[in-house]
Amino acid sequence: MVTLGHFLLLSGLLMAVGLYGVLTRRNLIAVLMSVEILLNAAALAFASVAAFRDPHLFAGQVFALFVIVVAAAELSIGFAILLNVYRTHGAVTDDAISEMRG
């Protein structure tokens, strides 16, 4: 019997993996990909709570949809910025854009 706990635990594990990726990746595209995993973990948590605990309104599922939309928007903007970074610095690593540090 699948319970809400299973889904929430999986969501937490995915969240942990995503966090690890955000903190360890040095290529900015990879960082954005890790953020995607984070967002998906959140959407999964929303959807599972809605399916288990909200039999009428399914507000959580609507919110999961919204998370997907936000993910798409975030990624398109992020990639546009990364393209500019690539044009000005020639690479999209974290070293490349640390010149402000002096």
């Binding site: 809400l4 706990g5 605990r53």
Partner: peptide, 13 residues
């Protein structure tokens, strides 16, 4: 997220 372990046994709608 450790509170999620063993959380509920609800029915999927």
């Amino acid at each position: 997220f450790k509170g999620a372990v063993g959380h509920g046994d609800g029915q999927i709608t």
